[in-house]
Amino acid sequence: MARRRYHDGLALHQALPGQFLPFLVAAMSFLAALALAGGIAAHGLSQRWTHGAGAVTTVQVPGPDDPAAGSGTRVAAVQDILAHAPGIVAAHRLSDAELRGLLAPWIEQTGDASLPLPAVIEVHTAAGQDPMPPLLPRLEAIAPGVLVEHDSVWSDRLAALAASLQACALLAVLIVMTVAVCVVMAATRAGLQTRRQAIALIHSLGAMDSYISGRFASRVGLLALVGGLGGSLAALPMLLAMSHLAAPFSAMTDAQATAPMDWRDPRAWADIVPHALLWMLLALPPAAGITGWVTTQLTVRAWLRRLP
């Protein structure tokens, strides 16, 4: 009996065949997923390089062994402040050997091995924090001439690059969505055209516009939902692989970055895949379905206006 409910002559299975539309929507969802993943990855990398473990601040202390204002050497006093400041994960004083290794090209040129070297302390700050500026006056007081250098040239460039990548991703998603809306409109119009006699008839028998547009929209919405699901599923393996490759670069700590991955542990996958990516993949099919539904509603209602 329920089988008969939709024997209203619209024959939507013919008007909107079930292969064409889901396939196109799947292809476009796939492209949208890749673009969004690119945007999310760019955001993640820029976070890591501007605020994460990759962001290293160097503190140079001239005359490290001179006595500080209070007691002990200047470098010891500076290290003491850094060690107790919030937001600083690690402060490591480069040894003389490390320093000479770093400076070897210049030292060899000048040939002067007894050049007085400043102490260089590498400061790793916690993700998303910049604790250095408030410390500056205190450091300056105990070690005049202290130099704090943040790798901001690189991080600024990376941030700009990430921002433009994100803008590109957004643009790509907008274009894909526009194309998807156009495809749905064209498919709906073609479907209306093939069933125009049946539509005109049920219209003159008293069918409401909302009934006809609702029938078309629920069919297209369902097909688009299926297509979106297909696109998400198709994008999933690719995004997992890419996340795996990107994991060492986007990990917030060095420990995460270098830890070996257990391939069979689903939680390990969940760790390396940014959560935003998972949410995006989950949200894509309903977004495709809703877009299809709304587009079809508007298309059918506009088309029905030709009937009095």
Binding site: M1, R4, R5, H7, D8, G9, A11, Q14, Q197, A198, L201, I202, L205, G206, A207, Y211
Partner: peptide, 21 residues
């Protein structure tokens, strides 16, 4: 409507009024 049976053609107005089957 050529693709509906005679029954469904005649039933069409009642279906559009959501009458019980």
């Amino acid at each position: 409507l050529p693709d509906l049976s005679v029954f469904d053609n005649v039933a069409l107005p009642l279906r559009l009024q959501h009458r019980a089957e």
